[in-house]
Amino acid sequence: MKLNQTPRVDATRILGFGSYRPERVVTNDDLSAIMDTNDEWIRTRVGIVERRFADKDQTVPDLAVIAGNRALADAGLKPSDIDTVIVATCTMPCGIPNAAAQVSSRIGIENKGAFDLNAACAGFCYSIGTASDLVRAGTARHVLVIGAEKLTDSVDPYDRANAIIFADGSAAAVIGPAEEPGIGPVVWGSAGELVDLIYMREDRYLFQEGQSVFRWATTAIAPIGLQAIEAAGITPADIDVLVPHQANLRIVEAIAKKLRAKGARQDMVVAEDIVTSGNTSSASIPLAIDRMRADGKIRSGDTMLLVGFGAGLSYAGQVVICP
């Protein structure tokens, strides 16, 4: 007996982006009013000037729906064009129901595949790789990937080591077929032996061993980026834009410095959305891209290196072409 198989697609690309930043802006001075910190201390250690907090009654699906609709509009597609929805998140208050099914229905994507993916701050890159493979395999024609986080629900508001870093937001991308490859192979992995560096304290509050995570990220992530560049069949000099997870401005700068030492150009644009958005976990990479597109810092056709890393310790990277 011979079974039918869905025809494969040779290449995929990102067709559009969309993002949402909550309206409430929280400055370093605002935080210094409720904890032992100050603007200089925060800027020096993590590079953050301000961040966005969602309203108390806003949920992860609420944030995701806005970004998802904007990505569809940017891609020029309708909800009926989407076959699968992936929501990358680590901040749903419980495992059931998942965010993706709720988001899919609210956007108007009816009776299609929908699932959450939790790789923490690497979640968006994991999801882009998964979505690209779904399209290439013929399982889906168009996939909506959304990174959405409400980290303020998971952070002790008086913990100055962590509360100064994390924030809320969402951003999305649409992945579909292409005549030429626009998404390179994903290079991913995890350092499970270091899982205790980032965890939920008392099963309630997000906690990380800041210095240990900093040392790991500044050592391990640039080589992952170089592997992704090699897997895409290009060189560091071909990278127009570097978009690492926005964890800490010093980490971002260290990754860029190491890539330039390996041949990346001095004029390579480096995302620094951490300064005004804080760490938004799986939303940070697409949030940064969408803002740079809006500001004219990157253009359609630019070659971008995305590198996500976070709890797990999970990491992933790929080269993509800006839509």
Rank of each mutant, 00 (worst) to 15 (best):
A231E: 01
A232F: 07
I234F: 07
T235C: 05
P236F: 10
P236V: 09
P236K: 05
D238M: 11
D240W: 05
D240Y: 12
V243H: 00
A247I: 02
N248I: 07
N248F: 03
L249D: 04
L249N: 11
I251Q: 12
V252P: 10
A254L: 10
A254M: 14
A254R: 09
I255L: 07
L259W: 12
R260L: 12
A261F: 01
K262V: 02
G263A: 11
R265A: 14
D267H: 14
D267S: 14
M268R: 09
M268K: 06
M268N: 12
V269D: 00
I274M: 12
T276V: 15
T276H: 15
T276F: 14
S277M: 15
S277N: 15
G278D: 06
T280N: 03
S282R: 00
S284K: 10
S284G: 10
S284T: 08
I285V: 14
P286T: 11
P286E: 07
L287N: 07
L287E: 08
I289N: 02
I289S: 07
D290R: 03
D290E: 13
D290T: 09
R291V: 15
M292F: 03
K297A: 13
R299G: 00
R299V: 01
S300K: 13
T303E: 09
T303Y: 02
L305F: 09
L305K: 08
V307F: 04
V307I: 15
G308L: 10
F309S: 07
G312I: 05
L313N: 06
L313S: 12
Y315G: 02
Y315V: 06
G317M: 03
